[in-house]
């Protein structure tokens, strides 16, 4: 695995659209010194889908801790939020 992807994670938010989803997730990340490198948002089959590429290099939180925080935020917002190490996408989609 390359060092470049060592601290990169992918956050996906899936659920019913409502006010404050992006603000909620971005706020949580900012308060933990996590930089958002890329963000995209679509409505797929009436389902709100947001994908974020984040950099954990400057944060003292790791993916496991963040997963817990994002889970809780997801329940508050009524959406499903997942965070996964970027290596999994590299493994599956890049040769």
């Amino acid at each position: 695995m390359t060092n470049k992807s060592k601290n990169t994670a992918v956050i996906t938010v899936v659920g019913r659209d409502r006010v404050g989803i992006i603000a909620g997730v971005a706020g949580l990340l900012a308060s933990r010194q996590i930089n958002i490198k890329d963000i995209s948002q679509t409505i797929l089959d009436d389902v709100f889908t947001m994908i974020m590429l984040v950099d954990l290099a400057g944060s003292r939180f790791d993916i496991k801790e963040l997963a817990g925080c994002l889970d809780a935020l997801g329940s508050d917002l009524g959406v499903s939020i997942r965070i996964q190490h970027a290596d999994i996408f590299d493994a599956m989609h890049r040769i």
Partner: peptide, 12 residues
């Protein structure tokens, strides 16, 4: 870096 399709395919 990855397309939305790739990421959603993996998640699904």
């Amino acid at each position: 870096m990855y397309s939305d399709f790739e990421i959603l395919e993996t998640i699904r």
